[in-house]
Design a protein around this nucleic acid. Structure first.
Lengths: 218, 218
DNA sequence: CCTACCGATCGGTAGG
DNA sequence: CCTACCGATCGGTAGG
C-alpha cells in the first residue's frame, strides 16, 4: 500500500537475542530508516512537527535518542523526507487511478470523479500520514526544501488543470480554472480536519458529494 | 475593524520618560494585554504555536521575558485567548454583513454571496491573524478549551446551514447539506494557504469564483 | 511589569 | 546503531 518496504531480513537465521546486529554484507538500512519515517509521519501529524521531539520518534521506532541522526542529518531532513514520500505516493496513486492512455475513454466529469476519489483515498485512507503532514507542515521547511517540494506539487496540480479546463469549456464548471483548482483542492484537503473514518460518510459518499457540488448538470 | 481596542491612555499627561509607569488609579491593563494578544496572533500564524516562544511574544510587545505571565497564566491560555477573539470577530462580522432582519430581502444565493464575502474579509483581510490561528492550531488546545471553542464554531456554522438548505431545496446546490457545508468552508479556509493580497485575484474575484463554483444556475 | 533564576528538555555529536 | 554527553533554550515563578 505505502510505497516500498525494501528488503526485510532475508537471512532469517538464529540471532543471539537482543537487538539485531548487522553482520558483514547484510544491509537493512532502508528498513530501519523507513520505520523512522513512518513513525515520524504519525507523530508529526498528531502533534505537529515543532511539538514532536526526535526522542519521541526514536522511542516509537524502538531506538535510543541519538540514533535517528544516524539515518537523517537533522530533524528537518526527516520532515522533508516524510513530505517527499507523501507527494510521491499521491502522484503514483493518481497515475494508477487514471492512466494517460485511458483518458480518452472518460468524459471530463468522469475524469474529475477519478481524480477526486484518488485524492480522498490517499488523504483519508488508513495509515496515510505522509500526505497530511505534507499539507500542513510546509511552514517548517527551509526555502530550498520548499522549492524542491514545490516542483512535485506543481506536477500534482498539472494533473487537474486540463480536466478543469475541459469542464470549463463544456460549461460544467463556472469560475476561472485557476481559482477553481485552488478552491476545489482546498475543499478536499480540508477534509483531513473533520473526516472521521468511523462516523460520518464513506469515502464514496464524500466523492459523490464533491463532484455534485462542483459540477453543473451536463 | 478588529473588535475592541479598549481605553488607550486617557490621561495623556507628561510622563517622566522610559517605560510608562502606572500611577495609582490608572488602569491600562487591557491595553498591554491586547498588545500581547495581537503580537502572539501574528507570531503564531507565521511560525506556529509550538515554534513560537513566550520570549518572542514578550519582545514583540516590548516586554521582558517573564512579563507575559503577568497577563496570562500560561502560553496555552494566550493561544486560547487569540482563538476566542478570532471567533468573536468572525461572528460579529457575519452578523453585520447579513443582519437577520434583512434576510428576507435577499435570495438564498444572495445570502450565500454575503456570507462568503464576509468570510473572506475576515480570513484574508489585512491584520487579521486571529482567525487563521484559530483554524490551524486547534491541535494545541486542551480538551476543555477545544470544547469551549467548539461552541462558537457551531454557532458560526449555524449561520450557513439554513442558507444551504434553501439552496438545496431550490436545486441550486447538489450534494447533501451537511457535507456541502464542510466542503465549502474547507475551500474557503484553505485560501489562507495560497491567497496573496498582492498578486492573484482580489477578494471580490475570489468571492465571485466561489459562488460560481458551488451554485447552479438559478 | 522587571530581575533573577530554576528545572527540564531538546537537537545534535563524539567515539565506538 | 548505542552510550554519554553538551550547550542552548524554554516555560514558568518568586519577590518585589
Amino acid at each position: 500500500m505505502m510505497a516500498a518496504d525494501v528488503q526485510a531480513s532475508a537471512d532469517a537465521g538464529r540471532r543471539p537475542r537482543g537487538r539485531p546486529r548487522k553482520t558483514a554484507g547484510e544491509r537493512d538500512d532502508g528498513n530501519r530508516r523507513h520505520a523512522l519515517l513512518s513513525h515520524a509521519a504519525h507523530l508529526f501529524r498528531r502533534q505537529g512537527f515543532a511539538a514532536t521531539t526526535t526522542r519521541d520518534i526514536a522511542a516509537a521506532a524502538g531506538m535510543q535518542s541519538g540514533s535517528p541522526f544516524y539515518h537523517f542529518k537533522s530533524k528537518n531532513a526527516l520532515l522533508f523526507a516524510v513530505m517527499e514520500e507523501g507527494m510521491h505516493t499521491a502522484l503514483a496513486h493518481q497515475r494508477a487511478a487514471l492512466p494517460p492512455e485511458t483518458l480518452a475513454d472518460l468524459s471530463p466529469m468522469g475524469q474529475l470523479h477519478k481524480r477526486i476519489q484518488a485524492h480522498f483515498e490517499v488523504l483519508l485512507g488508513p495509515g496515510n500520514d505522509f500526505v497530511p503532514v505534507m499539507l500542513y507542515e510546509q511552514r517548517s521547511l527551509s526555502l530550498r526544501q520548499h522549492k524542491q517540494l514545490g516542483r512535485l506539487v506543481t506536477e500534482y496540480e498539472a494533473l487537474w488543470s486540463p480536466i478543469l479546463a475541459a469542464l470549463h469549456a463544456n460549461g460544467q464548471l463556472r469560475a476561472p480554472v485557476g481559482l477553481a483548482r485552488l478552491l476545489i483542492l482546498g475543499a478536499l484537503n480540508w477534509s483531513v480536519q473533520w473526516f472521521d473514518a468511523k462516523k460520518d460518510a464513506s469515502l464514496q459518499d464524500l466523492t459523490e458529494a464533491a463532484v455534485g457540488l462542483f459540477i453543473k448538470e451536463s
